[in-house]
Amino acid sequence: MILEIYKDALEYSAKDWKTLVLLGVICLFSFLLLPIFLIAGYNYRVVSNAVHGIINGRDPLPGFDDLVDMFVDGVKVVIVQIAYLIVPVILFLIFAFIATYLNDMAAVVLVIIGSLITLVVGVIAYLMSQMGLCHMAYNEGVFSKAFELREIKEIIDEIGWFKCILTYCGLIIITFVISTVVSTIIGAVFTVFGFSGLLFSAEAASGIFIFGMLVNWLISLFIVGPYLGIFNSRSIGLLYTMQI
């Protein structure tokens, strides 16, 4: 089942390269702050498409119409994620705060225990936040649904906690592998070119190296980054539909 999710999501994200480039352009302007929310809103649309459909390989990518709507959705997504993220952060700060009043050995032990607890809580909070977003998307964007902890917990129970965490680990691995492999291949190609350029002159070689880095950066910005973003959103949205 999990493998089908990955397969569908990988194919889905590769459907339209224009969308990827467009997302890359938005990403390029994200220092202006507003585009960050547009990207979050677009990923939310992908989730929304996924939770309302099934694995079928025919869903089209969401469009870029109605930017205002996309922006507001993005703000919602960011608020939900921050709200869930605050929990582990505060937990860790409490541990750190108590630790300052203890002597050396106890403090170290407490911080280690605290970090472990924070890690577990953080993973749970992340899972809940993603499922919360899916739940919100499923209920046509009703904001409070993202914080219906009991409903979200029931959904995760139905899917299975182990399956959820396994899917997430898979997502992390796939994301890491794709981004590394792509940049390694491009890097390798340009390294070969660069050394062949050395036959002519040192300047040519260094020029080729710099050009290679530029190409690498551009491809990861315009193609790989958006691709992985859509891939992750689609996978999580499909995971939500796995409840029986």
Binding site: L32, L33, L34, F37, V72, V75, K76, I79, F143, S144
Partner: peptide, 25 residues
């Protein structure tokens, strides 16, 4: 009450984001 406070805070957040982005530009 919760919905009321929530929507106003949400609107203020959107307002602040727009203002910050614009003042940046």
């Amino acid at each position: 009450w919760g919905k009321y406070v929530g929507i106003i805070i949400f609107t203020v957040i959107v307002y602040v984001i727009i203002m910050v982005a614009v003042s940046f530009v």
